[in-house]
Design a protein around this nucleic acid. Structure first.
Length: 373
DNA sequence: AATGGTCTCAACCGCTTCTCG
DNA sequence: GCGAGAAGCGGTTGAGACCAT
């Protein structure tokens, strides 16, 4: 084992060496001065950044900007970009972060794409400094969004009432709720909603009926089952049950109830799914396309199976997934332009944004949910 | 006022992915 | 198909601000 002093020495050497990308150059590091910001901003606004590695060189013609390209890029993206949104995160933004993180995990760049004007670094910092702690204070594991073991009841079934609040509602509250998370765990009000922690789901729910187009089920659309690794979906064991007396009261929990209202995704009020209500299960998610794939390409499996799969099996799954993706791409009626690498983003774009950005679905007809074909 | 602990966030590091010749 | 360079990404670090004692 290396001693602490060795580690420190190594780090110091690295620091002296500078970036790998610019080790031969003498570059400045550390905080950017206002003058440097001004120089970089001026250079990029007049010349564009082009190749980042060339920015310091080119900029050096006009200015003495002794920063490496990587540093310039980072400074531009995280601070100087004109479309950046400064200031603290709103509750709405926090909710989006939580929602997307629940599905994607620590994919900060992907999460940040759902927050216009926010950078991955900003989101990451906010998560680590605020959201993570809030979730933990509520007994939730920030990695899985499950209740942590110490908070589980003996019955292994925990019901809690979650009262999501609109941003406006929260702004009106005086004083603000003690936990500023948009989720308030309230044990006083009898079950509108419950969140169950269950053993791994063993049965794959029937695929939901296809989406409606302008209120009518599209005859063109057939379900496609796409296997996704469990790592894509962080929280396979949480079942969101809409137990509201009026489950159509989407203002109570828009994600869970939004599709119950008129049925496109809700043959059951319970699904092992994120609260956005789409057919996302432990290893499958349902999307809709014109190609018919009658059966899931592999059987539903158990939690932890992912770890047991050897690499070969994993590759096979990926191949199958890719094949399905390719088939889905043939669909002209809808935007299926995603590939395996961008799938999660596209999926979340189409689901979470509709759920997270529109808080009050009670006044929205299902026509408003019609997908853009 | 001094001190030490904690928090925040800009910046860095190193790895992965993408692009291009 | 391969390699090099560029870009992107997530984890980590550390300086400064803040707070409690």
């Amino acid at each position: 084992m290396r001693s602490a002093s060795c580690v420190v020495e190594g780090k110091e050497k690295k620091r002296q060496m500078g970036h790998r990308c610019c080790s031969k150059q003498k570059v400045k590091k550390g905080l950017w001065s206002p003058e440097e910001d001004e120089k970089l901003l001026k250079h990029i606004t007049t010349h564009g950044h082009g190749s980042w590695s060339s920015v310091p060189k080119l900029a050096g013609i006009y200015i003495c900007l002794q920063r490496c390209g990587k540093s310039c890029r980072l400074r531009w993206i995280n601070y100087l970009r004109p479309d950046l949104r400064r200031g603290s995160f709103t509750e709405e933004e926090e909710q989006i972060i939580i929602d997307v993180h629940r599905i994607l995990g620590n994919r900060w760049a992907q999460i940040a794409k759902h927050l216009p004007g926010r950078t991955d670094n900003e989101v990451k910092n906010y998560w680590n400094s605020c959201v993570k702690k809030k979730l933990m204070s509520q007994g939730l594991d920030p990695k899985t969004h499950n209740l942590m073991p110490s908070h589980q009841r003996a019955s292994n079934k925990i019901s809690c009432n979650i009262i999501p609040q609109t941003y406006q509602q929260q702004q009106q509250q005086q004083p603000p709720i003690s936990s500023s998370s948009v989720f308030t765990v309230n044990s006083q009000i009898p079950g509108n909603l419950s969140m169950e922690i269950r053993p791994p789901v063993l049965t794959l729910p029937a695929p939901p009926p296809p989406p409606f187009v302008n209120g009518n089920q599209s005859p063109l659309l057939q379900p496609i089952t796409i296997p996704i690794p469990t790592s894509e979906y962080q929280n396979p064991n949480v079942l969101w049950n809409s137990c509201a007396q009026n489950s159509h009261d989407s203002s109570i929990f828009p994600h869970a109830s939004s599709f119950d209202q008129n049925g496109p995704m809700s043959s059951s009020s319970s699904s092992s799914v994120n609260p956005s209500g789409f057919g996302l299960t432990e290893e499958h998610c349902y999307i809709w396309g014109t190609n018919t794939i009658p059966e899931p390409l592999h059987s539903p499996s158990f939690a932890g199976k992912q770890q047991q799969l050897d690499q070969q099996e994993q590759q096979q799954k990926e191949k199958i997934c890719q094949t399905q993706m390719d088939e889905a791409k043939g669909c002209q009626e809808m935007d299926c332009s995603f590939d395996s690498s961008s799938f999660d983003l596209e999926f979340v774009d189409s689901t979470l944004m509709s759920g997270a950005m529109c808080r009050d679905f009670s006044s929205i007809s299902m026509d408003d949910f019609a997908w853009n074909f």
